[in-house]
């Protein structure tokens, strides 16, 4: 077991709405096994992204706990510096949007987290180039700035950046939403080939093929609650 999520609840208090409360997650419990690929599915607004953001602590948890066993901490209550250290060394997160930095080339965007965690710049760039070519990004774009890329090209850079450090726990929030079917297949091949059993993935996906090709188990959310948790073989079109 890598994660034990227990009755996780996330409420947002919106001051602009006179303090009205919006519920993002409502008592979700789930165990995540070491090395598995857990897909999170459910309609828009069902709490998929909220779950990932709570795990990464971009959202502060309202109640409940998130036991991260490798470090023996509760992510929901540990201090900010512990989270910073875990993010720097073993927990990765990526959304569907590339958070690019102006005038930094695609290769350097992907290589940056590696360099920051101490890999020599040339090896980091080499790994970055490998990942980008596996995802079918045209070679001439490697040294170009992603700001001018298409949605699909940017998302390839984003996914490559997420995979590059091979974190122990990888949180993927719809990382393939803008990819065409052909590129999605490349992404599946790459994720399967590149991530070994030492990486556990919790990933939000809209696309069924992706879930079936990648997931070991599927967590189904609806209205912020856990609707189901089942092996991928038993998962058939539960999602909208």
């Amino acid at each position: 077991m890598i994660l034990t999520v227990d009755t996780l609840t996330k409420r947002f208090e919106m001051h602009v709405l006179d303090g009205a409360t919006v519920v993002g997650l409502d008592g979700v419990s789930v165990n995540v096994r070491d090395g598995e690929f857990l897909a999170v599915v459910g309609p828009s607004g069902s709490g998929k992204s909220s779950l990932l953001k709570c795990l990464y602590q971009t959202y502060e948890v309202s109640s409940g706990s998130i036991r991260y066993h490798p470090a023996d901490v509760d992510l929901a209550t540990c201090d900010d510096r512990t989270i910073m250290r875990l993010r720097g060394s073993e927990i990765g997160y990526t959304s569907q949007f590339l958070d690019e930095i102006p005038r930094v080339s695609a290769v350097d965007v992907v290589a940056r987290p590696l360099v920051e965690s101490g890999m020599p710049a040339e090896s980091a760039r080499e790994r970055a180039r490998d990942l980008l070519s596996e995802l079918g990004l045209p070679g001439p774009l490697f040294e170009a700035y992603p700001a001018t890329f298409s949605g699909g090209e940017r998302q390839r850079v984003n996914l490559a950046q997420a995979l590059a450090p091979r974190p122990r726990l990888l949180l993927l929030d719809e990382p393939t939403s803008a990819l065409d079917p052909e590129t999605r297949r490349l992404a599946v091949d790459l994720i399967r080939a590149d991530l070994g059993p030492e990486t556990t993935v919790v990933g939000v996906f809209h696309n069924h093929e992706m879930v079936e090709a990648l997931a070991d188990r599927v967590l189904v959310l609806g209205d912020g609650r856990r609707r189901d948790l089942l092996p991928v073989a038993e998962f058939e079109g539960v999602v909208a």
Binding site: M14, H15, K53, T58, Y59, E60, M84
Partner: peptide, 21 residues
């Protein structure tokens, strides 16, 4: 106070929410 991404994406205080909006 908090992690920067938490402040930006999950602001609690009315003033922080206003600042981000």
């Amino acid at each position: 106070r908090g992690l920067t991404d938490r402040i930006l994406e999950d602001p609690h205080h009315a003033y922080t929410q206003q600042l981000i909006n």
